[in-house]
Design a binder for these strands. Sequence first.
DNA 1: GCCTATATATAACA
DNA 2: TGTTATATATAGGC
Lengths: 212, 212
Amino acid sequence: MEDGEPSSTTCLPLTEQKPQQNPKSTKGRQKIEIKQIDEECRRQVTFSKRRTGLFKKAAELSVLCGAQIGIITFSRRGRIYTFGNVDALIENYLRKTPVMLRSHRGGDVANEGEEVDGMKWWERAVESVPEEEMEEYMRALSGLRENLWIRICQLGGDRTVQMNAPVFQDPMAAIEWKMTDENLTVRNDQGQAGNDGYLDVAGVPFLSQSRR
Amino acid sequence: MEDGEPSSTTCLPLTEQKPQQNPKSTKGRQKIEIKQIDEECRRQVTFSKRRTGLFKKAAELSVLCGAQIGIITFSRRGRIYTFGNVDALIENYLRKTPVMLRSHRGGDVANEGEEVDGMKWWERAVESVPEEEMEEYMRALSGLRENLWIRICQLGGDRTVQMNAPVFQDPMAAIEWKMTDENLTVRNDQGQAGNDGYLDVAGVPFLSQSRR
DNA sequence: GCCTATATATAACA
DNA sequence: TGTTATATATAGGC
């Protein structure tokens, strides 16, 4: 947009300028390029502010449109910040996109619908599985489990910070939920405690925000 | 837009303000209350626009701060819209908040850390479980599975719309990702196709949502 | 969808 | 953190 001095040519210099010794207390919001922020400090500030903004937007969308929204965020340090009823949404999501089930019977997702007694294999009680199918059943369950945890070891961080906004057990609850400061407050629950020193590369904080 | 001059108000009032030709082409963005939108049509438009905005914000945050972000959204019709590498994030999330494991050995999460051969019970191969523990193991797995699917039947809708933005297999990939139109384009894949008529129960949305 | 006028989100500072 | 000046998001309308 405009950049340099638009010059004051179009304005009459009639009255003296504002006596403010503050020609412009700040530069205001500057345009930035959407690319990785290198400066640790600035990045953290941005992460914090924008995460807050993102969650707020999600909350508004949820209320305005009665939608269920869940957000999972891993900071680069491996810390988790979540919004919404993530657990319920995950379960629902897993059902609608059953990627975890491919390991059953050859891994062809086409078999997914196979039923016995009107139930999908994963819906049947373990005890109801016939002896002769047990081995295969176990293998399937194992695969299910494996798929759940297979990539677990790929990430290192272990610090968990839960930031939960509204929890909509019931869809309608989302509508009731109001965006009060209370609701948007960060609940930094240290998880399983332990050494609190995060051993951050540069003594940058980001951890001393325990409140509430 | 101009800024050089502190007060445009001091500009010469010589010419009459805007000629009346443009009374105001639009009212511009109006302030709205954050509460459930009743009008079906307006709600859908808002949902669409704000969802796009939300995902865009998420993408920016992801790139700017190198964070991994996943968003799951269920419209009130039960359609899913997701952003980010949801699968990977879910797995990671499940590890850090192993709520699914409470069913093991009395449901005390305190036992969660119990290890055998340096592996958590859920990490062990099914085949390695001693015969005498098999029954209990199966019960535990069953519980795990049950917890995964327990609430499955509570939702009715089956339409699945996947809207996937970037897929960050690797954390660093997020940084590379650019916010092109291509990336932000909605990929509306009907899932398993079928009747598209949702049969939404009159105005009362969320239809047969079974409540608890 | 595209457009305009405003309501909001936020980058740079203190 | 809180403030300020701008960059963006978007409600209402085609």
